[in-house]
Amino acid sequence: MGKSEIIDRVVDKELKMFTSVKADQPVSCQDDADGFKVFRSAQFQAWSEGTLVSYLNDLEKAESEGLNLMTMKYARMERKIPSIHENPQVIQMIGEMVAIQAGWQKEMIQKYPSVMARGRPIDELSNTAAMTSFKKYLSCELETYSQMTLTHLFRDIMNCYSTGNNMSAMIYETMVKNLGYESLVAAEEEISCR
Rank of each mutant, 00 (worst) to 15 (best):
164 G>N: 08
74 Y>T: 14
102 A>G: 14
117 A>K: 08
55 Y>C: 04
136 K>W: 02
180 G>N: 12
138 L>V: 03
174 T>W: 07
57 N>M: 06
2 G>Q: 05
194 R>F: 05
145 Y>D: 00
157 I>V: 12
102 A>M: 12
162 S>C: 10
162 S>Q: 13
132 T>Q: 00
130 A>K: 11
57 N>Y: 03
130 A>Y: 05
107 E>M: 04
129 A>H: 08
45 Q>S: 07
150 L>M: 05
103 G>D: 14
98 V>G: 01
2 G>N: 13
107 E>C: 04
108 M>L: 13
72 M>I: 15
178 N>K: 15
58 D>M: 03
66 G>F: 09
31 D>H: 08
118 R>K: 07
35 G>F: 03
43 Q>N: 09
144 T>E: 00
61 K>V: 13
153 L>F: 11
193 C>E: 11
33 A>F: 04
119 G>M: 10
108 M>N: 06
27 V>Q: 03
188 E>D: 10
136 K>P: 06
39 F>N: 00
166 N>H: 10
156 D>L: 11
73 K>E: 13
135 K>G: 02
16 K>R: 10
139 S>P: 06
41 S>M: 05
33 A>C: 04
106 K>F: 01
175 M>G: 11
121 P>S: 01
94 I>Y: 04
74 Y>S: 07
187 A>D: 02
165 N>H: 09
135 K>A: 01
25 Q>S: 01
76 R>M: 14
178 N>C: 12
174 T>Q: 10
106 K>Q: 07
40 R>L: 03
189 E>V: 15
85 H>C: 08
92 Q>K: 11
109 I>K: 12
17 M>D: 06
149 T>Q: 03
44 F>D: 02
44 F>L: 12
162 S>P: 01
124 E>I: 15
147 Q>G: 03
64 S>W: 13
71 T>A: 13
109 I>W: 00
8 D>P: 04
148 M>N: 03
